[in-house]
Structures are given as structure tokens and as C-alpha cells.
Amino acid sequence: MKRELLTVKSNRKLNESVFELVLTGASPMRAGQFAELTAEGFFLRRPISLARYEDGEAVFLIRIAGAGTAKMSLLEAGQTVDALTCLGNGFDVSANAPLLIGGGIGCAPLYQLAREFGAKGVRPVAVLGFRTAAEAYYLDEFAAVADVTVATDDGSLGVRGNALDAVRAANIRFDRYYACGPAVMLRALAVGLGNGQLSLEARMGCGFGACMGCSIKTVSGFKRVCKEGPVFEASEILWE
């Protein structure tokens, strides 16, 4: 973990609910890690997954979920953001034929993961699920680094259905999957696809292991989403 004062390089809306915040001055982070970003006027920081990192530049794709993230969506170039960076464990990037599965804002960390696979000469398959076409984002960026299948709940873009439906319909060959999205989706993947790596989301107090606000039950005891996670083996999670 590092505490860093980052500078906003750019901030733009990707759709009605998701914005792309580009921050400079960040220490190196890897796919699956997250940062705790300050929202001005709010007590707790917001835990946000890394979507891309390159040469001190960290990109965060943020869904406006409440007043704090709405405030962050108004940040302008040149402003600073007090951040705790390099939090969490990250994905393992070990597969030879990786399948990335994202749901909603959970697609964001998979973009950096696809880039890291690309750096190893591996082009992953990515199945990106959204509720509707208007909520999709970063499709061109993903297409540059992965073979992409899009699924929407209402069929307005790509195949109709959820990400797991799309994985099955496309009959994708893979040796390991990596997923991030709503808990209900991750649980369905753990049941339907067996073991893989899941990046979990949780309301956090601190983000660095002190408050026990985000502990989950696993086969090897209690683990903190922020510290031992947010990436867990699907097989180790004891679902509530």
C-alpha cells in the first residue's frame, strides 16, 4: 500500500453511469489490485479497481453508485486526488488459454488483465455482460486486446442473456477463467464452471486490512476482501 497524491489527467463520461478517471503519479499496480480514492467532502474513501496502468498513469472506470462517486465524476484535469494505491492481491495471470468474464462495472479490472496477458503473448477471450446496450463501455478497447463476446440481459447488444449463458452458447475453450461482477454472477460461475479466479466487491471501511469490515468465510478461515483478496479462488469461497 502507498499513500499518494495523484493528479487528474482527464475525466470523461463513458455512458450515463460510468466515467473514466485517468490519474497520474501512481506507483505501479497490477490487474486485480485497487485503490482507495478520496471523494471530497466524504469521510470514507471509495475502493476502485484498476482498469489500466502504464508509466505512472492509472485509469479507473467508476460507476456512479451514490453521492460520493457522483462527486468524483466532477473531478477536472489538474485537480488532485488523495489515494491509497497498490491495494489487494491481484489476478495470477497464469493461464495459457484465459477466459475473462465481466458483469457491469466488473468488466473494468479485466481490461488491465487482458493487457497483462497480451504482454505475455497470450490473447484472452473476454465475455462482457451488461444489463443493456446503453450501459456497455470500453468495447473498442477490449476488442484490441481480446476476442470479445458481448451479452446483454435484454438482448439490445450481442447475445441475449447473462455472461454465463454467453460462455456456454459460444462453447469457448479455456484452461482458466477470471471473473469480476455482481456476487450472484460470480456464484453462478463458481457453480457452473468450477474453479477460477473471482474478484469480489465489498463495502469497505479502510481497504488495507485494519477494520475487518469486508471479511468473508473461506475454506481456510476468515479472509478480508481488501487484504487477502479481492481476488480469490472460486473453490475457496464459502458462499453465504
Binding site: F43, G68, A202, R203, C211, M212, G213, C214, S215, E240
Partner: peptide
């Protein structure tokens, strides 16, 4: 979970 909620100048745990 959730065990944490934001408040003005504080939090509930």
C-alpha cells in the same frame, strides 16, 4: 456483510 456505512464526518460499523 455489509458491515460498514458512510456517514457525514464518520462511519457506522
Amino acid at each position: 456483510l455489509p458491515r460498514i456505512a458512510e456517514c457525514p464526518s464518520g462511519l457506522i460499523n
